[in-house]
Measured scan of single mutants.
Amino acid sequence: FACQWLNAHFEVNPDCSVSRAEMYSEYLSTCSKLARGGILTSTGFYKCLRTVFPNHTVKRVEDSSSNGQAHIHVVGVKRR
């Protein structure tokens, strides 16, 4: 389900990036709304992400508004 969900909601775009945590959060929200069992852990979800978008990269984005915490963004992917 996770791989199908990724294909339905995201697409390849080399000029874009999406927060990896936001992607997983949206996946969890969809699973909750659909009352799905067998929800992937974040590790399983990221493995699926690598399968669906094998050419993506990740980058660390520093967020000055959150006490220097960094966010991981998936580069080469955008929301549909």
Rank of each mutant, 00 (worst) to 15 (best):
A2F: 01
A2L: 12
A2Q: 00
C3V: 02
C3Q: 01
C3T: 07
Q4M: 06
Q4S: 13
W5N: 00
W5V: 02
W5G: 00
N7F: 02
N7M: 03
A8C: 05
A8Y: 10
A8F: 07
A8M: 05
A8N: 11
A8L: 07
A8K: 15
A8W: 03
H9N: 07
H9M: 05
H9G: 08
H9Q: 08
H9D: 02
F10Q: 00
F10M: 03
F10T: 01
F10P: 00
E11N: 02
E11T: 12
V12I: 10
V12L: 09
V12F: 10
N13K: 09
N13S: 09
N13G: 12
P14M: 11
P14L: 07
P14R: 08
D15P: 05
D15W: 04
D15R: 05
C16N: 14
C16R: 09
C16M: 15
S17G: 04
V18A: 08
V18L: 08
V18W: 02
V18R: 02
V18N: 06
S19C: 08
R20L: 08
R20W: 09
R20S: 12
R20K: 11
A21S: 12
A21W: 07
A21I: 02
E22R: 08
M23K: 00
M23I: 07
M23R: 00
M23V: 07
M23G: 00
Y24V: 02
Y24L: 05
Y24S: 01
S25E: 13
S25H: 13
S25G: 14
E26A: 10
E26I: 10
E26D: 03
Y27M: 00
Y27A: 00
L28Q: 10
L28T: 10
L28M: 14
L28Y: 15
S29F: 03
S29N: 04
S29W: 03
C31V: 13
C31F: 06
C31G: 12
C31I: 10
C31Y: 02
S32V: 09
S32N: 12
K33L: 09
L34S: 10
L34G: 14
L34W: 10
L34R: 14
A35M: 06
A35F: 04
A35R: 06
A35V: 06
A35N: 12
A35D: 14
R36H: 06
R36D: 15
G37T: 09
G37K: 13
G37V: 07
G37S: 14
G38R: 13
G38F: 05
L40I: 14
L40S: 07
L40Y: 02
L40R: 09
T41S: 14
T41K: 10
T41P: 15
T41F: 04
S42T: 15
S42C: 02
G44W: 11
G44N: 15
G44C: 06
G44S: 12
F45C: 01
F45Q: 00
F45V: 00
F45I: 01
Y46C: 15
Y46N: 15
Y46E: 15
Y46R: 12
K47M: 04
K47W: 06
K47A: 09
K47S: 10
K47E: 11
C48E: 08
C48A: 05
C48D: 01
L49W: 01
R50L: 13
R50M: 09
R50T: 11
R50D: 06
R50K: 07
T51N: 15
T51S: 15
T51H: 13
T51E: 04
T51G: 12
V52D: 00
V52C: 03
V52K: 06
F53E: 00
F53M: 01
F53K: 00
P54T: 07
P54D: 03
P54A: 09
P54E: 09
P54L: 03
N55G: 10
N55Q: 03
N55M: 13
H56N: 03
H56D: 02
H56S: 11
T57Q: 08
T57K: 06
V58H: 15
V58W: 15
V58P: 06
V58F: 03
K59E: 15
K59M: 02
K59H: 07
R60L: 13
V61P: 07
V61L: 08
V61D: 04
E62F: 13
E62H: 05
E62G: 09
E62V: 08
E62A: 15
D63G: 13
D63S: 02
S64F: 11
S65A: 03
S65V: 08
S65K: 05
S66G: 10
S66I: 15
N67M: 05
G68Q: 09
G68W: 07
Q69A: 14
A70N: 14
A70P: 14
A70W: 07
H71L: 12
H71S: 11
H71A: 13
H71E: 14
I72V: 11
I72T: 14
H73Y: 13
H73M: 13
H73S: 07
H73L: 09
H73D: 14
V74Y: 15
V75L: 13
V75H: 11
G76I: 01
G76W: 01
G76D: 03
V77M: 13
V77E: 00
V77W: 00
V77A: 03
